[in-house]
Amino acid sequence: MTKPFEFCKPVSKQAVPTGPDWIHEVKYDGYRGRVIRHGDAVQVRSKAGLDLTYRYPMIVEAARMIRAKQFIVDGEICVMDVRGISQFDWLHSGKYNDDAQLYAFDIIALDGDDLRGLELEQRKSKLAKILERRPQGIFVAPFERGDIGPQLFEVACDMELEGIVSKHLKRGYRPKLCDWVKVKNRSHPAFSRVADQFG
């Protein structure tokens, strides 16, 4: 297997960034994960490096159906309700492992090439291409661009979502200098989980 890369982790902020070079994605409430394929071998890895391959068969099968034979895709492992909203408790219970999907928002390696130095806009294009006819189990994160971020955050809160993540389109995948910003819905259960964890 390809040596694992360090994850790029969004920084918490109070305000959503705006401008033409920023994009905004819904923040799904799940487990951060990475799907690694090398030939016929597929792994699903957690942020802590745990091997979750055996737990999420639909994600693994979807990865095997993609035409590219070597890639590393970054995303969030989620279990969705009928409204398309991620349910952390369902995922955490382990009772819905067969229904878990990957909300894919980045690609950092493809066909032997390390893509971390490319701008996010270029990586997004490559990700969309390999998942163009995506099988069920992995879906591309939709995003909005520019000054719409604050309004999108309000909509996310109204829909009882966890929040949004904003990313600069002209930056590489830089874990040490991450250009990703997360703004959380303070009324969402995830906000309380973090507050309880850190007191």
Results as ranks from 00 to 15, higher is better:
150 P>F: 00
160 E>F: 12
130 I>A: 06
134 R>I: 05
120 L>H: 04
159 M>S: 01
105 F>A: 05
147 D>R: 00
149 G>V: 09
123 R>C: 06
146 G>A: 10
143 F>D: 12
136 Q>K: 15
109 A>D: 01
110 L>N: 01
130 I>T: 08
166 S>H: 11
122 Q>C: 13
153 F>L: 15
166 S>V: 10
132 E>W: 10
160 E>Y: 14
147 D>E: 11
104 A>D: 04
109 A>R: 12
161 L>P: 05
138 I>R: 01
123 R>S: 00
126 K>C: 03
166 S>R: 03
164 I>E: 04
103 Y>D: 13
100 A>H: 03
114 D>N: 13
122 Q>F: 09
119 E>D: 13
112 G>W: 10
146 G>L: 10
111 D>E: 14
165 V>G: 07
151 Q>T: 10
102 L>M: 15
158 D>C: 06
110 L>H: 03
121 E>Y: 04
114 D>A: 08
111 D>K: 02
145 R>F: 07
127 L>N: 06
121 E>S: 15
148 I>C: 13
158 D>F: 09
116 R>L: 04
117 G>F: 08
101 Q>K: 15
151 Q>W: 06
133 R>L: 14
103 Y>N: 15
122 Q>M: 14
117 G>A: 07
116 R>D: 06
108 I>C: 04
136 Q>L: 14
108 I>K: 07
